[in-house]
Amino acid sequence: MVNGQAYAEVIGDPIAHSKSPTIHNHWLQQAGITAEYRASHVRSQDLESFFEERRRDRLWRGCNVTIPHKQAVMPLLDRIDPAAERIGAVNTVRPEKGKLVGYNTDYIGFLEPLLPLLRQAHLFRMARIFGAGGAAKAVALALHDQGFTNVIIARNPDQARALRESFEPDDRLIAPLDLFATPTDFPFDDREGILDLIVNTTSLGMAGQPALLLDFSHVPPNAVVYDIVYAPLETPLLAEARARGLRTIDGLHMLIGQAAAAFALFFGTPAPRGDDKALREKLLG
């Protein structure tokens, strides 16, 4: 490694768009840690050789894993944390006593901005989750563990069914994506004491992608709308939710939350979170 510094990194294909180096290097500077964090372009066919090389590098503190490698890395590791095993995806790898161990920090990162709400008592908790991919599984399991009844909404009903079966099979709680694009006259009952959550885990609404088509007649009054997309920060979904006076959570919350959990794994100290506002501004600059 250049300058003999300890380092961590994020791997993916593509990888140039990643904001992880900005986040981690900001925290390294804030914490006064002499180390660096970089982005490394690793293709699927090179994953095995990448990890064999990193095993021998004493300066390597680990890596974050992004698309399309979150499942592909799992057979290459010596051990997988039970939470990551349950989710079926790894987004963080670090060396531990000569072994490579896989973790998933998406679970805790997703829940972080919801914690003030989750500390409250509710009569019932329901989430309508759009998407059934890897991110959706971490989200669905996290919410299931917090007592939510999850409706999985996806283009592919088989994928939605498989996701639900991973934690609680129920075909009544899966639905096709296009159903939510058309108006409904469903009369929502009194939602007092109920926590309703709308979550977009798809790439719909991301820069260069079409918007998520959601008719807001499907959204319960006082619902919280959470979009894990962070480019743009205000997706069409969040813009409409805000215009309707609903509470919203943008994708930078999850991005920063999952990075903080990974930072602690890599560098053995909590991420310095006292300046999150400046970090958000840096990420948007």
Rank of each mutant, 00 (worst) to 15 (best):
A35Q: 03
A89R: 11
V65G: 00
D57H: 03
I33N: 00
E85V: 00
K97P: 12
D81A: 03
I87W: 09
C63S: 11
W60I: 10
R79E: 15
R79L: 14
D57R: 02
S44F: 08
I33F: 04
T92S: 06
I33V: 15
R86N: 07
L111C: 00
L111R: 00
V93H: 10
E96G: 08
G109A: 03
I80N: 06
H69K: 02
I108M: 12
T92W: 07
A31R: 05
H41R: 13
S49Q: 15
L47K: 06
L47E: 08
Q71L: 09
P95M: 12
G109N: 02
H69F: 06
G88M: 05
N91T: 04
M74V: 14
D57P: 02
P68H: 04
T66L: 05
P113S: 05
T66G: 02
T105L: 11
G109D: 04
V93L: 11
F51M: 08
A35T: 01
V90E: 06
F50D: 10
F50M: 11
T66C: 02
P113F: 06
V42S: 05
N64T: 02
F51R: 09
M74P: 12
I67R: 05
T34L: 11
W27C: 10
L77F: 09
D78Q: 06
S44V: 12
Y37R: 01
S49P: 04
I108R: 13
W60E: 12
R55A: 07
D106L: 01
V93F: 09
K99Q: 15
N64E: 04
L76N: 07
Y37E: 01
F51W: 13
E85Q: 12
P68K: 03
T92H: 07
L100P: 12
D57M: 04
C63L: 03
D81G: 00
A89L: 07
R54Y: 08
N91K: 01
N64M: 04
V65E: 00
R38I: 14
A89M: 05
C63W: 06
N64G: 08
G32S: 00
G109P: 04
K99C: 15
R86H: 09
R43S: 14
D81Q: 03
Q71W: 00
L100T: 13
T92V: 15
D46I: 06
E53I: 08
V101Y: 11
Q29N: 09
T105R: 08
E96S: 13
F50T: 13
L76E: 07
P82D: 06
A35I: 04
K97H: 15
S44L: 14
S44A: 14
Y103G: 01
Q45C: 11
R86K: 12
Q71G: 04
E96N: 12
R55W: 07
G102I: 10
F51E: 09
E85K: 13
S49F: 06
D78C: 07
V73C: 04
R54M: 14
F51N: 10
A39W: 07
Q29D: 07
G102T: 10
P113K: 01
F50A: 12
R56D: 13
T66I: 06
N104M: 05
W60K: 10
A83P: 02
H41E: 10
G32K: 00
W60Q: 10
R86G: 01
P95G: 12
L28G: 03
D81Y: 01
L77M: 08
N91M: 04
V65S: 00
E36K: 09
G102N: 13
V101K: 13
Q29M: 03
P95W: 13
L100H: 14
D81I: 01
I87C: 08
H41K: 10
Y37A: 01
F51H: 10
